[in-house]
């Protein structure tokens, strides 16, 4: 034990003015650093400390990362698939198509004649003839009513022309074309078929909403799970927080390590999610290519781009920070010295 009675050494040197040529701030023993330097130092300290704590508990850290990784990977994979579908939909030439039903008396030769004449027009790309016999047979096959059709005395269907307008024409030219086609001799009825297009676009919209909704739910779940993890971390360090508050650590000082912990958990989860999405997509790539080949498309499944991967890690980090923010806001206030 030291000599208790002597003047206390650690107070020596107090209030000593800086000597000539001495930089006050850099002098050993002068005191705390400049507030900005201190702020940066505290951030570095908190970042390193919380990373250190995570690394020293590898199992629970890995579990947290997995939970976040899975919660992020699922909507991310769906988003990548959705963007593939949207891109694929763009490549499909979606010609609005006219179906022209001819008079019942029109023969197949006359029908071909009308078709050839129509193809001369600049606003028409292609005209194909659907003859009544084939049309009836197809109808029978599609509906399963072959026996009923065989029992018919005569074919009730007329010959049909399928008219594809040129890709470049606008809506008003389309109306003009529709008028022209209606007034063509031999044409009984014109059906401008846009319904399938509307169905297709609505389906895409539905899919898009579904993916966004699922993604939001997963993300909110991830925030809550991480928030709970942080609540437990706060509880585990209650004694330390109380002591720090008692000896002059402010709310920000106490909060900082937990914010960094959330950030690291989020970034780690995001990185894991990148890996999961890449694995998932590589599993899907080959069957998807085969499926598309069956539809005569040489489309290749587009994977996660580098930018998208970065965004995923960034989203992970932001989510981590966000849930740490809400967890510390709710729970740190309750940890006060008694």
């Amino acid at each position: 034990m030291g000599d208790w009675s002597v003047a206390v050494g650690i107070y020596e040197g107090r209030n000593v003015p800086a000597g000539p040529g001495m930089n006050n701030a850099r002098r050993v023993g002068v005191g705390p650093r400049h507030p900005i330097v201190r702020w940066v130092y505290h951030h570095r300290q908190a970042a390193a400390d919380s990373l250190h704590k995570l690394v020293f508990e590898p199992i629970s850290t890995l579990l947290t990362w997995m939970v976040l990784g899975i919660a992020l990977a699922l909507p991310a994979t769906l988003l990548v698939l959705l963007s593939n579908v949207l891109a694929l939909a763009d490549t499909i030439d979606v010609p609005a198509r006219f179906s022209l039903f001819l008079n019942e008396l029109t023969t197949l030769e006359q029908a071909s004649d009308i078709a050839r004449r129509m193809e001369q027009r600049v606003d028409i790309a292609q005209v194909s003839v659907l003859d009544r016999v084939t049309a009836l047979a197809d109808f029978g096959v599609q509906t399963g009513l072959e026996s009923l059709i065989e029992s018919l005395d005569a074919n009730p269907l007329p010959h049909t022309l399928l008219v594809e307008p040129a890709a470049h024409i606008n809506a008003s030219r389309m109306d003009e074309l529709a008028d022209a086609l209606t007034n063509t001799p031999g044409v009984a009825n014109v059906i401008f078929d846009t319904q399938w297009l509307a169905r297709f676009e609505t389906s895409l919209l539905l899919l898009q909403r579904l993916v966004i909704g699922l993604g939001l739910m997963m993300v909110i779940g991830a925030i809550l799970i991480l928030g709970n993890t942080l609540r437990l971390a706060i509880e585990a360090r209650r004694a330390e927080i109380v002591v720090i508050k008692l000896i002059g650590g402010g709310d920000a000082f106490v909060r900082r390590p937990f914010l960094y912990m959330g950030l690291w958990c989020g970034v780690g989860g995001g990185a894991l999610a990148i890996g999961l999405v890449i694995i998932f997509l590589s599993l899907l790539a080959s069957p998807a290519a085969t499926l598309l080949a069956l539809y005569n498309s040489d489309w290749q499944l587009q994977g996660l781009s580098f930018i998208a991967a970065l965004q995923l890690a960034l989203v992970g980090g932001s989510l981590g920070l966000l849930s740490a923010w809400q967890a510390t806001t709710i729970h740190l206030r309750r940890v006060e010295p008694k």
């Binding site: 034990m1 050993v28 023993g29 005191g31 201190r38 505290h42 002591v243 002059g248 650590g249 000082f253």
Partner: peptide, 26 residues
């Protein structure tokens, strides 16, 4: 060292002061 970290002292300074304080209480 905890109060010095909170106040943002430099590492050199922290070591010196903590040792002085511990020396003083034996």
């Amino acid at each position: 060292a905890l109060p010095l970290h909170i106040a943002g002292f430099e590492m050199r300074d922290v070591n010196r002061r903590v040792r002085a304080a511990l020396d003083k209480v034996g």
